[in-house]
Design a protein around this nucleic acid. Sequence first.
DNA 1: TATTGTTATACTCTATAACTATA
DNA 2: TATAGTTATAGAGTATAACAATA
Lengths: 155, 155
Amino acid sequence: MEKISETYEAPASNALDACAVAQSVAHQLRRAHGQFTHRFLFYFSRVNLRPGEFTALALIAEVPGRKQSEIAAAMGVQRANFVSLTNVLEGRSLIERRNAPNDRRSHALYITPAGASLLADARKAEADFEADCLERLGGTRARDQFLVLLSRLFG
Amino acid sequence: MEKISETYEAPASNALDACAVAQSVAHQLRRAHGQFTHRFLFYFSRVNLRPGEFTALALIAEVPGRKQSEIAAAMGVQRANFVSLTNVLEGRSLIERRNAPNDRRSHALYITPAGASLLADARKAEADFEADCLERLGGTRARDQFLVLLSRLFG
DNA sequence: TATTGTTATACTCTATAACTATA
DNA sequence: TATAGTTATAGAGTATAACAATA
């Protein structure tokens, strides 16, 4: 994952456009991810959340009490790697592990008041990020179309 | 970067679809990249190339003699991180560093016969990968549309 | 036996700073 | 002074294997 700084300059334009690789989903997606990460961190620097942390927080808030492995599966993350993510969010007192009622192996995840508060700020950051995307894409129709195509490709 | 294995099972479906996060470019792109990497490595396991290596090889073949920093900039990679990438490709004798004619600081990059041969195989892998994408997206029109939107978003 | 959470490990990607040799 | 390549370092993401507690 990328670090945020003031000195780093994102590549100004896509230099692949002039080349034969421009028409390749493989080439373009590789490059797009770097840009995505950079832009996401810029918008979310206020709340200090990385993409995975934001998604986890949103999912935990949406359906309180789900198990770690359920959230991890929903995100497409290995449960082993979700442990450190959970530790970070719990260490910031944004979420809580509680004993699951019927299974003493499981931890049920709940958002805390502090977590809900930060999530509200994060949703504002997300709104700005999404507005940026909307403008670049050229309107809601193009945005919806992009999400449909992305979902077909990787859903 | 992900390792390739036979045991790993990619998440069967996008569990985010059922949630409010489905309509968010930020959530969906984070998840998409993991799927992309996994699928790319599956298709390119024959030639043992990772996404960045494939793009670098293609760019070096396209315009022989460009400097390392030029290729790195075209890819959106820091020149410091491009060094190890170059080392790997040169270590496999797929490319060659030569002295640049007018600047003794620079290395001009050239593809080797072995590199051209592997690149030909890689292009077959890419064709399969792109065909897979094409089928998922639902035709060339949707594919072109996706590339246009991706370019608007991160070009 | 299988599953949940966990730990440990390894590998990739990326950013940053500093060095060297040239320009 | 500035640039090209390099080295070193650090942080994040992910896969794998193995373990204890529990089902």
